[in-house]
Design a binder for these strands. Structure first.
Lengths: 215, 215
DNA sequence: ACTTGTCCTGTCATGCCGTCAGCTTACCGA
DNA sequence: TCGGTAAGCTGACGGCATGACAGGACAAGT
């Protein structure tokens, strides 16, 4: 599938090289969690990995290039979010459960990868197509499933005809992502995480079905 | 109210100084729109403003400091978003209109200031309290009004008791902000801006009142 | 013209960036 | 065992941004 890992100057990376490369990625990932993206420097990453800046440039064109690599790995994992919705029902009590599990799974995923997701979000918002594409890959998995569910309910006449399934699904997914990214912000509104989740699930359920959930 | 404008080394800025200072802010603002935050350098801002880097450092400790200044000015303007909700009703047809006008006003504001808001969002997500505070200032104006509306409807028994007004309001506001920041993303889902707005308004209305709007 | 305080810039030490040439290490076949 | 070859790593370097300072330019009042 994916060709061999290559260095910037075209060499094929062997065992040792791949290990260094991965170590650099791991260290960069860690740095993104602890310091502002703007202040992450190649030399710091290299130092942390116990190597030299020149080595970093052997494997990545620049910091952004390495970030894209990390983001790609995460996006691959993110494709699994589809499972949160595959084959689920939005009817009755199981609908409420579907909404809850979606919120839970999504928030967990975001929390796990929050540092890299912040950067991806920024890159996408700034109009960088590469970041944009990665963000899409993650959100699409959830968005498409949601849009399908809404469209199906719509075809059964249980959702108004002037609803645009993609627009609603996209907005709900954006909401999930935004809330996940700013979970801390809610505490200053006096909202604890445990309270937040059911209310999010409620909004999801309302958005998808147009009705309050029966619990 | 606010004390005089001061330089980094404590001098009071006069008319001429304030003009240069503002020019630097304007140029920085422009650069944020055209290039990634990570790549905005002091020397470029200074060049664009027809001055020297040293001058920049006379008025701001660093790029971040200047960005905070711009963000503050914007936040002051953003406080006016409250008007979108003050004294509005959520009942019947006027409720639908309230939702629509909120969406319109909010999206316009975000579009107008998207570059600086991206950076504020990033700073807040990274845990920087100064950016966080600014973000709050803007969102609070809308959030509080929304939460009040929900709480009021709740006290009248028109909204379920286990709904947390702050949590719902916060989530809806986060949704608005996220959709505004990634409006471009929706086009790849085949959703045009004109279609997006009414669907957003629908979600807002559903979230606040728990019911579909009567149009 | 002189003083005072504001305003701007030339210059400098420091540190990161990104590249290259060249050295070291690992692997492999004879 | 012994080169040969390709992978792997780094010291060193020019270039540029940073941030500090001292000193010169300027405007306004006396």
């Amino acid at each position: 599938m994916t060709g061999q890992v290559r260095t910037v100057d075209g060499r094929v990376a062997g065992r040792r090289g791949q290990a260094t490369r991965q170590k650099l990625l791991d260290c960069l990932s860690e740095m993104l969690s602890s310091s502002p993206y703007r202040d992450v420097k190649v030399i710091d990453v290299a130092r942390k990995a116990g190597t030299s800046p020149a080595t970093f440039y052997q494997y990545f064109p620049d910091v952004e290039g390495a970030v894209l690599e990390i983001a790609d790995q995460m996006a691959a994992e993110g494709a699994g979010l589809t499972e949160l919705l595959e084959g689920r029902s939005w009817a009755g009590k199981s609908g409420w459960q579907t909404a809850q599990e979606l919120v839970d799974g999504f928030l967990d995923f975001w929390k796990k990868h929050d540092a890299i997701l912040r950067v991806v979000d920024l890159g996408a918002a700034e109009g960088d197509k590469r970041f944009y594409k990665i963000r899409m890959k993650i959100l699409n998995s959830v968005n498409n499933s949601l849009a399908d569910s809404i469209a199906e309910l719509q075809s059964k006449g249980r959702v108004d005809k002037d609803v645009n399934p993609s627009a609603v699904a996209g907005s709900l997914v954006a909401m999930l992502a935004a809330v996940a990214a700013h979970q801390r912000g809610f505490s200053s509104w006096g909202v604890k995480q445990a309270e937040l989740k059911p209310n999010l699930a409620l909004l999801i359920h309302l958005g998808v079905t147009g009705r309050k959930p029966s619990k």
